[in-house]
Design a binder for these strands. Structure first.
Lengths: 157, 157
DNA sequence: TTATATGCAAACGCTTTGCATCACG
DNA sequence: CGTGATGCAAAGCGTTTGCATATAA
């Protein structure tokens, strides 16, 4: 079975509530700064860097400091509603996601949107590697890059 | 006296010569510092960080500065005899490799050794993703983590 | 009320850069 | 020789931490 998590109709990978709710569910305090960080994350369509959020927070004149943002990002990541990934450029980026089971991401190199891919069917491939190489494959990271349907059809080269 | 710990022939992904040779082939100057950095890289069995090499260079009392090491790493990377990869921890690591065609790496979580995997047969998988999602898949990064045959058979848990 | 979270600023580690000097080709 | 590479030190990032204060529960 291969189910694809097509980006929601609206564009928004994850509702603000999900992020904040995860806090409460896990027994963490739902504070104002964390709520705001959640909003800022939701306000961005796709992946973003810590610097992006810090800039957003500053632009919106919230009094939130860098440290708090980094701490919130760590927290959300720990709660698995956020995932940290490495762009080909070597930069770090975060992407909101449902705390689901193992999945991968595909990043649009034009607009930055990110979609989750539930299962690409790697199990067999990895099994093959294991048998051919003698290595035991414990985990893996797969990141895909390309163009989303929207950017694909249209003016973009 | 500091003798270089040359890994057994079977383990060595790339000979010192290959690194240095790549310089000449590409028209870059083959300087003493670059030669030494090449040796230091070859002396390490698997992946390593820039900090590792800097420490090695210092320990061996070569007069090579940080900047030169970073510049050499960039150069080797550009020549594709070295590849930069991201460990799950988020750290950056370098791994020597033949300037071959597309390949992946598998990193041993016990000893740090790295092996190249020429082809895991991802083409079909990616094609499938493309068709099911509507996204155009341009590139990808796959990194595998596990245990090498040596660490697998033995005392290690 | 009290453990937690915050903001600030300073510290941090990694990487890059400016510049005078050096050395490969 | 002349261009390109080096070493040093200082600057530049992105990120973390110590600590007094503020706040959610």
């Amino acid at each position: 079975m291969v189910s694809i998590d097509v980006p929601p109709p609206t564009d928004r990978p994850l509702a603000v509530g999900s992020l904040v709710a995860a806090l409460g569910d896990a027994g963490y305090r739902v504070t104002e700064p964390r709520r705001v960080v959640g909003e800022l994350i939701a306000a961005r369509g796709g992946h973003f860097s810590a610097a992006d959020l810090i800039a957003d927070a500053h632009a919106r004149r919230t009094g939130i400091g860098r440290a708090t943002i980094f701490r919130a990002l760590d927290l959300f990541t720990e709660l698995r509603v956020l995932e940290r990934l490495d762009l080909p450029s070597g930069e770090h980026a975060y992407v909101p996601c449902a705390p689901a089971r193992h999945h991968h991401h595909i990043v649009c190199s034009v607009c930055g949107r990110v979609a989750e891919i539930e299962d690409v069917g790697l199990a067999g491939t990895l099994e093959g590697v294991q048998q051919r190489t003698g290595w035991q494959v414990d985990s893996h990271r797969l990141e895909l890059y390309g163009r989303c349907p929207r950017c694909r059809s249209g003016r973009h080269a």
